[in-house]
């Protein structure tokens, strides 16, 4: 980036993608996919900082706007036009809430990028692990689905695998939250009779899947914790759509 070259697309990694060990794997797989299709991309590295999403959802608009304006300054300085994010929260914030503060970009989520690449014929599902006939259920992240109406892109990315896609009872616009949104990720839940991620995992397990597909690092944490709690780690794998795509292409 510092070399003054302008990339085709900026990959916004996000805090989870940068620091969370599990999410780092997803980050690296997104890079592998970008590399595989020969796309010229860049990351901000240490110049990236939190979009401000958790601060905004928690009600701290000051902190959100401080973060937003600092980020916008960096993005505009590099003349960024198009951004792909690895997280629906970063996606929603940059796409919807940055324009009003002076940062207007074309923003897509990585599942949309994967769908585009499949549509353009640049990405297939070959040369790697076969998911043919495998039972996969997809969990809609709230900020991708209801928040922004994106239900099809992640499913298209899975359809190409020739796998058996099974929907949970509550899916798409009726999808049940994993329990992490609205800054819940960073606090203990209020008292109740069940944790939200356990409610969701119970529902996912009803479909008897081999894989649970996710599209959000926070959902990933909540769903993985749920699977661990249910002691199903051997039978059911929770994978991000980027990881599934990378595996299917042997990346």
């Amino acid at each position: 980036m510092a070399a003054g070259e302008e990339p085709e697309i900026l990959f916004w990694v996000g805090c989870a993608g940068s620091y969370d060990e599990r999410a780092q794997k997803i980050t690296r797989d997104i890079c592998k996919i970008l590399h595989h299709v020969g796309m010229k991309y860049a990351v901000l590295g240490t110049e990236e900082s939190c979009t401000g999403d958790p601060a905004k959802r928690a009600g701290n608009e000051f902190l959100f706007q401080m973060q937003a304006m600092t980020n916008i300054e960096v993005l505009n300085a590099y003349n960024i036009k198009k951004i792909v994010t690895g997280c629906p929260h970063c996606f929603n914030t940059i796409k919807n809430e940055y324009p009003g503060l002076g940062g207007t970009y074309e923003v897509i989520h990585h599942t949309q990028l994967i769908q585009d690449l499949i549509n353009e014929g640049k990405l297939k599902a070959e040369g790697g692990e076969s998911f043919k006939g495998k039972k996969i259920t997809y969990h809609d992240p709230c900020y991708l689905g209801r928040g922004n109406g994106i239900y099809e892109a992640p499913r298209k990315a899975l359809e190409v695998l020739d796998a058996q896609l099974v929907e949970m009872k509550r899916c798409k616009s009726n999808g049940l939250c994993c329990g992490a949104g609205g800054a819940q990720m960073f606090k203990e839940p209020e008292k109740g009779k069940k944790d939200i991620n356990v409610e969701r995992i119970d529902e996912a397990l009803e479909t008897n899947p081999q894989f649970i597909a996710a599209g959000c690092p926070f959902c990933m944490t909540m769903l993985s914790d749920g699977i661990k709690l249910k002691d199903k780690e051997q039978e059911v794998k929770v994978l991000d759509i980027a990881e599934i795509t990378a595996r299917a292409n042997g990346l």
Binding site: R28, G45, C50, Q67, E188
Partner: peptide
């Protein structure tokens, strides 16, 4: 309290967790 801690982290480390901004690119 945990929300305040998260907000403090963003303010000081530009991430909701207590990691150093210098380590942000370590994933690579």
């Amino acid at each position: 309290g945990s929300i305040n801690a998260m907000l403090g982290n963003i303010e000081n480390n530009q991430a909701p967790w207590k990691y150093s901004p210098a380590d942000r690119f370590n994933w690579a």
